[in-house]
Amino acid sequence: MNPLPPFTARFDDVEVTFPRSWEMGENGVARRVSGSVALENITCEFPAGQITGLLGRNGAGKSTMLSLLAAFRRPTRGAVLVGPDGDLRDPWEDAALTSAVLVVQEGGDVLQDEKVEATFSYYADLRPDWDPEYARELLDLFEVPLRKKASVLSRGKRSALAATLGLAARAPLTVFDEVYLGMDAPTRFAFYDALLADYAEHPRTIVMSSHLVEETERLFENVVLLDRGRVVLAEPADDLRTRVTSLTGPTAAVDHLAAGRDVLHRQHLGPTTRVTVHGPLSDDDARAAAAAGVTIGHEGLEGLLIHLTRSSREGTGDGGTTAGRPLAGKESHR
């Protein structure tokens, strides 16, 4: 089968609303689920051949957004398009695309009551780019038993199985949706290593949703931050790491430096004040800070995420209350 180039995925003003519906619970008893808006005005892109991190709190809509890529459901409004650059199409019921887009969700979508190997041969048959030898290697690495029933595996082993499926399928668009949940730390790092090694060898588009930001952020080339069903930012990861800065020093000097900036957090420790500001500092600012005895720190991606989602959620006193606020804040620095 001819290989495909890495896929781009694009969301164009996508909205997903869930109607009031029934769901089958784990105990087999149906329960009412009230309607809700899961995604609103989602417009963003996962660029071809890059690793993008989809970050956000639990319930921000990450899984719903990623489900659209695999055509697990249709958007209520807007368009979801995937494909090689310049030839993006709707993946809905198009086998050429669905067999090239793999969304691995937590626990893995496996044949529950069958042996693990049944799931493997199923994926092997449906995935044109499946590499059976690589799949074996990964199973050995993660110590997943082939001959056990999928339903009796521990949570960690199920996640390892899901990770294996995701890597061995070599899909031009591969999405790992919180796939590391339940894995212990060594297994998680083994997964990140395997992902990087295989990505370098077989370039493809990878999206990883995560709330373990600290651990995964260095894998990302791009970051999309989702909060309460909206895209808060979508930018190259390197640009974001220095976006939130802390200024620590004498209160007067800190206040002087922080004046006119978007202050996210303020903390007093006696005569010393620590202020967290949103937006980069210029070299001049840095020199002024050093001269005034103010220490500059960077909060990294995790800090940015916490500040952006907290301020949009709780509407702190020193700013607006909508999810769009952080973007507005960024513009105010230009």
């Binding site: 089968m1 495909l4 030839d87 050429a96 044949l111 049944a118 048959d125 449906l126 044109p128």
Partner: peptide
């Protein structure tokens, strides 16, 4: 050639998917 590749992959993927579902039920 890209469109051709997509078409070929679509046909092959459809065929093998139907076969796999039937095979699984048969099993």
């Amino acid at each position: 050639t890209l469109a051709q590749t997509l078409d070929a992959r679509r046909a092959a993927a459809d065929r093998s998917a139907v076969r796999t579902v039937a095979k699984h039920i048969g099993g």
